[in-house]
């Protein structure tokens, strides 16, 4: 478990000494039990930071957004509170030179003995109830409601990605709180394996995915919430366009429309497949895309599928090291060849 007081002290210290210029963390949200991301810059605000089972957000996204602001300047690092998955995502971002290691001060929080909950599971478990807060308590979540406290076994409420957590302890850190213990209830890719057992044939798979993709309304929430989707321009979005001093008129006129923005099935599939491929070797399973999807498309399955392929076929683990070349920018002599005639 994490000593929140110690974390506050640490945050206050590094802000006071000026070791960092700001700290990205979670604070109590404005509604219900949910935490929300916050960037603080004064030692006094340290106390406002929280750590509870609703700290879903991958705060590396906040950092990516900070970086995009015109006010971003190189200089003192920004600190960010990071779970195991968030730290992996920071690692990938550093691998891609989005940040230098010395630009980010990583305050690791270990999810040993915790993990975040899944709002959808909670809504099913306590229908019609909006708890005021949620807390960790050993192998259970304790949800405080108007009617008292509900102690619900962690397994029933925990987000799938936490049940299958690859590494609850943030490897990348300047300082870390909590123990370096594994937390997973299930082996990695358990949900994926279940899906593959349930949907065996090509036809069944298609039936399943067709239904999913037909629902997509192309709101791009998955893209917006993904820390890896930091491109200025999305190759499969025919509207947004990165324009720089060297962008020619011809370039502007001849933007490739790989797929259309409208929500047709084929275009939706094109979008999600491209996204999955672009995340191969980069997605570290923070599962934010799936959490924010308004129509409940199981996007984690797509990303997990390629993550597992990368692991099994290429021995590649996303977020393992800053110095690793990207999955698709490298190869091994003994990569699978069996599928080639």
């Amino acid at each position: 478990m994490i000593d929140l007081g110690a974390l506050h002290t640490q945050v206050r210290d590094i802000l006071e000494t000026g070791e960092v210029r700001a700290v990205v963390g979670w604070r109590r949200g404005s509604r219900g039990m949910l935490a929300e991301p916050v960037t603080i810059a004064t030692p006094e605000e340290a106390e406002t930071l929280v750590w509870d089972p609703t700290c879903f957000h991958n705060l590396s996204l906040t950092l990516v957004e900070e970086r995009k602001k015109p006010s971003w300047r190189p200089g003192k690092p920004i600190a960010v509170v990071a779970k195991g998955c968030d730290a992996r995502s920071l690692t990938v971002l550093m691998q891609e030179n989005c940040f230098r290691r010395d630009e980010v001060y990583v305050i690791g929080v270990s999810c040993a003995g915790s993990g975040v909950l899944d709002e959808r599971k909670l809504a099913q478990r306590l229908p019609g109830v909006e708890p005021d807060s949620a807390a960790f308590d050993g192998d259970a979540f304790v949800c405080a409601t108007a009617g008292g406290e509900d102690r619900i076994p962690a397994r029933e409420l925990m987000a799938d990605r936490c049940l299958e957590c690859r590494d609850a302890h943030p490897k990348l850190n300047n300082v870390v709180f909590g123990e370096a213990q594994p937390r997973a209830f299930d082996p990695p890719f358990a949900a994926l394996a279940r899906f593959e057992q349930e949907q065996v044939g090509v036809a069944e798979r298609w039936q399943f995915w067709q239904r999913q993709f037909e629902r997509c309304i192309r709101c791009f929430a998955c893209r917006s919430v993904c820390p890896m989707c930091y491109c200025e321009e999305c190759v499969v979005d025919s509207i947004n366009m990165a324009v720089g001093a060297d962008t020619t008129a011809a370039e502007k006129a001849n933007r490739i429309r790989w797929i259309e923005r409208s929500a047709s099935r084929a275009d939706n599939i094109g979008y999600h497949m491209t996204r999955a491929l672009h995340l191969a070797g980069r997605c570290i399973d923070c599962a934010e895309c799936e959490r924010v999807c308004p129509v409940n498309i199981p996007l984690r399955l797509l990303n997990n599928k390629l993550e597992r392929e990368a692991r099994v076929a290429f021995g590649y683990e996303p977020g393992a090291s800053i110095d690793l070349p990207a999955l698709v920018a490298s190869f091994r002599d003994d990569d699978p060849n069996h599928f080639i005639r």
């Binding site: 891609e96 030179n97 989005c98 491109c231 720089g244 060297d246 370039e251 070349p325 698709v328 920018a329």
Partner: peptide, 23 residues
């Protein structure tokens, strides 16, 4: 290189068989 699009992620640098790309 289309500079406006480049994020400097270095994937091309790693993929180039000729070490022809640098940041």
């Amino acid at each position: 290189v289309r500079k406006a699009h480049c994020t400097g992620c270095e994937m091309c640098v790693d993929a180039c068989p000729y070490d022809a790309i640098h940041l």
